[in-house]
Design a protein around this nucleic acid. Structure first.
Length: 507
RNA sequence: GCCGCGGUAGUAUAGCCCGGCCCAGUAUGCGGGCCUUUCGAGCCCGUGACCCGGGUUCAAAUCCCGGCCGCGGCACCA
């Protein structure tokens, strides 16, 4: 018997059972975390501060945060800024990322910056050498070829003391970029050449490539895999949630755990997240910004899938969180469709966004009626008490959408009119008349008090600009307010002034 | 090319580990109705899917084999 059938029978015979269950709406939940113990879970979010984060990066942040909260554990925030050369960290990014995380409702209990922990990595490197698990390769460029061939630099077999001395030489600046590296020993016949004796420490000339936090103080930098395995252990991380591009890294990092006799955390890898219709890649966004400085508004342009861009678009943090939790943690790639994100967002927005009348492709009509009338319109259907009044007198000019300006219509809150040769002729009859005749109930703007309004609507890589007029009540809303333009859609106030600029969120 | 991971309605996801309760659930989209001073929200009804081919089994979305397609990795990046 299908669920539907069971339900139908229940409804027929035992309706009270269903009522008691109470179909109350719940936030989506995550599946249980393998091996998690309440109060003991420690997760981490480890961004590279070379740019702001996008919704794809936000996924591990939100999942890690959600799981930490679910099990009353701790989320650790760790900036992974150990490459001043090719992924040079951005000074501002550290704070921008923290802002985005706070906005998303992600809360962390501890915070670390890897570039401030280099001595720790040097210490463990020394221990790895002492335990025979790492060595210094001074073969330079040739060392890589040897590894690829499955042989390795001859120094691999030198005594431990030699390597310890060489490490000190590296640290004291004896070697230049590329002349010496510390490698972590693995099988030399590993099918993936990048795993074979992977590099743990390398030299980066910070005079040429200064680091935004430590300047030119250090010239030996750990690779991702060395720093991460050490930190995850020292920070007591129990569960690592990261994208599947890290699967091979997990394999590499396990060599450190094994050598140091540390218990590895539980690793969970999930597929990549794409947001339909948005540009996500950091490098792509950077390039667009450099090549078209006039076309885009910055990293927070509403056409970008950055957290800042989505925020500017009018997407709420709850909507992002909920959508990401709904997507879950499966290994395949996922595409978050805009329709879905918008639907979740709309549900939340609808309860809070005040209603404003806006007219886009307008036409001017003169009112033809006996006396002044006042429209009182609630700002929100669920809060009828909060209303604004608009007084319309004979001879006033009213703006309507061109497509609405024909036949008989009801101007919302005001009255019924007939559009007749450039005029709006009052025909009376009240709301009952309008309903009975199924007149369109439309929004309108009194020209006298109209607020010039510019709407920016992202459409793929384009930003469609539409100009129109809003009712005076728009002036009550400041930057960042979310409103609903009646019969048009939701929007976020982007700037105020003589002209109001709104970013169109979705219908 | 080599390693690894996936393929459920238009879209996204549940179920797959431990085969039957799945003629496949949910959300969104789409169509219709009710309600409502919005073409919004809410409520109700409808629509529509297990990549293909074999095999195992009384029974397969679930297990096995092959194919096709997609994604990830193959750095002194993270």
């Amino acid at each position: 018997m299908s669920l539907g059938e069971q339900r139908r029978i229940l409804e027929e015979r035992y309706p009270s059972l269903l009522e008691e269950k109470g179909e109350r709406e719940e936030r989506p939940r995550l599946p249980p975390l393998p091996g998690a113990v309440e109060g003991r879970v420690r997760t981490r979010f480890a961004p590279n501060p070379d740019f702001v984060i996008h919704i794809g990066n936000a996924r591990p942040a939100i999942l890690s945060d959600e799981y930490a909260k679910m099990y009353k554990g701790v989320l650790v925030l760790r900036f992974e800024d150990t490459d001043p050369r090719t992924k040079t960290p951005l000074r501002e990014a550290y704070d921008l990322i923290k802002e985005d995380l706070k906005w998303l409702g992600v809360s962390w209990g501890e915070e670390y910056i890897q570039s401030l922990r280099l001595e720790i990595y040097y210490d463990v490197a020394r221990k790895l050498i002492e335990r025979g698990c790492a060595y210094i390769d001074t073969c330079g460029e040739e060392g890589r070829d040897l590894i690829r061939k499955g042989v390795g630099c001859p120094t691999r077999n030198n005594p431990v003391e030699w390597h310890l001395e060489e490490l000190d030489k590296m640290l004291s600046g004896h070697y230049g970029e590329g002349e010496a590296v510390l490698r972590v020993k693995t099988r030399l016949d590993h099918p993936n050449p990048s795993v074979r004796d992977w590099v743990g420490l390398r030299i980066i000339d910070t005079v040429k490539h200064p680091h935004p936090i430590t300047g030119s103080r250090y010239n030996v930098w750990p690779t991702y895999n060395l720093a991460v395995s050490i930190d995850d252990h020292m920070m007591g991380i129990t569960h690592v949630l990261r994208a599947k591009e890290h699967e091979v890294n997990t394999e590499k990092q396990l060599y450190v755990y094994k050598c140091m006799e540390w218990d590895p955390p539980v690793f969970i890898h999930f597929g990549r997240l794409k947001l339909e219709g948005f540009i996500m890649s950091k490098s792509h966004i950077r390039r667009l910004l450099e090549e078209n400085p006039d076309k885009f508004m910055g990293y927070d342009d509403p056409r970008f899938g950055t957290i800042a861009g989505l925020r500017r678009r009018g997407i709420l943090p709850e909507a992002i969180r909920e959508s990401i939790i709904m997507l879950g943690v499966k290994p395949g790639d996922v595409t978050l469709s805009w329709a879905n994100l918008a639907a979740v967002n709309r549900k939340i927005l609808d309860k809070m966004a005040d209603r404003i009348m806006y007219v886009g492709d307008w036409v001017e009509l003169r009112v033809d009626q006996e006396e002044c009338m006042t429209a009182t319109i609630p700002r929100h259907p669920e809060r009828p008490g909060e209303a604004r009044s608009i007084r319309v007198c004979p001879g006033d000019v009213i703006l309507l959408n061109k497509s609405d300006a024909r036949g008989e219509v009801r101007l919302m809150g005001l009255g019924n009119y007939r559009v007749d040769d450039g005029r709006l002729v009052y025909i009376g009859g009240g709301l009952e008349y309008a309903r009975g005749r199924r007149l369109p109930i439309i929004q309108w703007v009194r020209k006298e008090e109209a607020v010039k309004t510019r709407i920016l609507r992202p459409e793929g890589l384009d930003l469609v600009v539409e100009e129109g007029y809003s009712e005076a009540a728009l002036r009550d809303y400041g930057v960042d307010s979310r409103i609903q333009l009646i019969r048009y859609g939701f929007a976020r106030v982007d700037s105020t002034g003589a002209v109001y600029t709104l970013v169109y969120t979705h219908s």
